[in-house]
Design a protein around this nucleic acid. Structure first.
Length: 532
RNA sequence: GGCGGGUUCGUAUAACGGUUAGUACGCGAGAUUUUCAUUCUCGAAACAGGAGUUCGAUUCUCCUACCCGCUACCA
């Protein structure tokens, strides 16, 4: 019987979710949704020492921002996510809450001869490691050494029983076969073989905190939660043989999930995988949301940098995957449709901040001016501009109608990458210029031109009716051409007066936006400030 | 060191034995425009190296180099 697709994203709450982690979550989500399956969010908090407060909430908030909603798992408030049926056969989803489950499975393996109790303390092993290293050798706890160490394989039964009873720093270790070729299949990498003799006897369960390690918890939970595919980072590929052997030891081969190991995200330049420091150093975020560590250190986020979640998700999807055709822009739903595991790229993807900006720009120009105006208003207010209903404009009072803001945004949105760029691009549409860029003034504010510009301005000021771009443009052009004036010089003169610089929208756009009264005021001010 | 994975323009990628090796970002040059931006056109830019297999290899095999990961009572 075909099982219902169930995948999981299983982060460890040891810090903020890195963008590579978001990509892993995204691919899992896309895979599940495409097949009408479930996407499970499981929190792997089995390492009590590395727990970071706030990390779990951060992870959930980050996924929420991206539009990635788990069908099962933990929600923002730490509660099990609500489902229509209200039933949660797989809960709890936080491994620390599943503590009692794991011990029996560890003991089952010992009973069946697949694992054993190890009594060597962490200190003893560290000393052993140091000793071997001093001799230029590497210590590995496996078939080559386990016979000489203190464990249930070497100690008398009575002694074992006593230690199990009286001490608390023992562990359960997997008894890795001495010489077995483990044959594995990966959905991305194909067939992979490893000799078990090179692997070590991994700790599966720790008596000290009565918690499993990743390997045990992972296999047990994936089995119990009926996971059908495991899509995770490449760093897990080396432990895949152990996981295969664990499924075998438990007798769960028939329902063992299929595996897909994703390549890592690399630094934009240089070597190595993307890390938190790169972002700070090279001026781009590596985290979806801003993160403040318990120590108070702040790391920037894509959201705070002005990225739209759609753009972020899109660029992440395209890092290591392609649709097979030349499309680049995808909504989340379109990604669900187009995604396929066999178009995932094997090699590591280097992140390119420039391309990231391009994505945002594309999404920005596709947004409605209404939406963008709403995003822009808080920035305007920060700059001391008040925004009211309607389309009024009061330059002296610094107060503008929402409709006016919308009109401005509609004209500038194709010039910006982020909403936060709007102010730099269009501040002159809210504040009358009082200063004029020296270089630009030197270039354009010449007596022979200003005289013509003033004459034109007078004509414009006297134009009948409502100013509307098309008619305005036609009239002005006609006026200039009929007099055989140098169009560029005159217009740039006017622009300097209206903008305070030699860049910006077309004169007609500006004039129609700010209106007759403000137009006249700006021309007069330029004349008074720069002279005729 | 051992084990595993990877390697196409600067970057992301296409190609599934035969192509002038395509596309996008970025970059350069033109054109359009009243400036700037946009837009449009054009351009520079890659098969890591070496052996095989084959009539023919970017594509298949092996070796080397380089990169990445793992090698914890972390995930």
């Amino acid at each position: 019987m075909e099982r219902k697709t169930r995948v999981r994203f299983a982060p460890s709450p040891t810090g903020p979710l890195h963008m590579g982690g978001v990509r892993t979550a995204l691919y899992n989500y896309l895979f599940a949704k495409q097949r009408g399956g479930d996407f499970v969010l499981r929190i792997e908090d089995t390492d009590s020492h590395r727990f970071v407060p706030g990390a779990e909430a951060y992870i959930i908030q980050a996924l929420t921002w991206c539009g990635i909603r788990p069908d099962e798992g933990v929600d923002e408030n730490g509660q099990v996510v609500s489902v229509p049926s209200g039933r949660h056969p797989h809960a709890p989803y936080r491994q620390s809450e599943r503590k009692p489950i794991y011990r029996q499975y560890a003991e089952q393996l010992v009973r069946d001869g697949y694992a054993y109790y190890a009594f060597d303390s962490a200190e003893e092993l560290a000393a052993l490691r140091a000793e071997m290293e001093a001799k230029g050798q590497t210590f590995i706890y496996n078939h080559s050494t386990r016979e000489k160490l203190r464990n249930s394989l070497t100690l008398p039964a009575g002694e074992c029983a006593r230690l199990l009873e009286e001490t608390t720093d023992w562990t359960v270790r997997f008894k890795m076969p001495a010489d077995r070729i483990v044959k594995m299949d990966d959905m991305i990498r194909g067939h992979v073989e490893v000799n078990s003799g090179t692997l070590d006897d991994k700790v599966l369960w720790k008596r000290a905190d009565e918690l499993p390690t990743y390997h045990l918890a992972n296999i047990v939970d994936d089995h119990l939660m009926e996971i059908t595919e495991v899509i995770r980072g490449e760093e897990w590929l080396p432990s895949l043989p152990l996981h295969y052997l664990l499924y075998e030891a438990f007798g769960w081969q028939d329902t063992m999930p299929r595996f897909a190991h994703l390549s890592l995200l690399l630094k934009p330049d240089g070597k190595g995988k993307l890390s938190k420091r790169d972002g700070d150093k090279m001026g781009f975020p590596v985290f979806p949301l801003q993160w403040t560590s318990p120590e108070g250190e702040v790391s920037r986020g894509y959201r705070e940098d002005g990225y739209f979640p759609e753009a972020f998700v899109n660029l992440l999807a395209m890092l290591g995957w392609n649709p097979g055709d030349e499309r680049e822009l995808f909504t989340l739903d379109e990604l669900v449709e187009a995604f396929s595991i066999d178009r995932i790229v094997k090699s590591g993807a280097r992140f390119n901040p420039e391309k990231a900006k391009w994505y945002n720009k594309e999404y920005l120009r596709r947004r409605s001016p209404e939406q963008l105006a709403d995003d822009f208003i808080p920035i305007l207010e920060e700059k001391g501009i008040r925004v009211t209903e309607g389309d009024g404009k009061d330059f002296a009072g610094g107060c503008f109608g929402k409709e006016y803001v919308r009109k401005v945004v509609a004209l500038i949105q194709e010039r910006a990458t982020f909403v936060k760029d709007f102010w730099d691009i269009a501040s002159y549409l809210f504040v009358s210029p009082t200063e004029y860029v020296e270089k630009d003034a030197a270039k354009f504010w010449k007596a022979e031109n200003t005289a013509l510009a003033f004459e034109l301005a007078a004509h414009i000021g006297a134009m009948e009716g409502i100013w509307e771009k098309e008619s305005f443009e036609a009239d002005v052009e006609n006026y200039i051409k009929s007099r055989e004036w140098p169009m560029g010089k005159v217009m740039n003169c006017l622009r300097l007066a209206l903008v305070g610089a030699s860049s910006g929208l077309g004169i007609a756009d500006i004039a129609c936006l700010i209106g007759r009264e403000e137009f006249i005021r700006r021309v007069d001010r330029a004349r008074n400030t720069l002279g005729a």
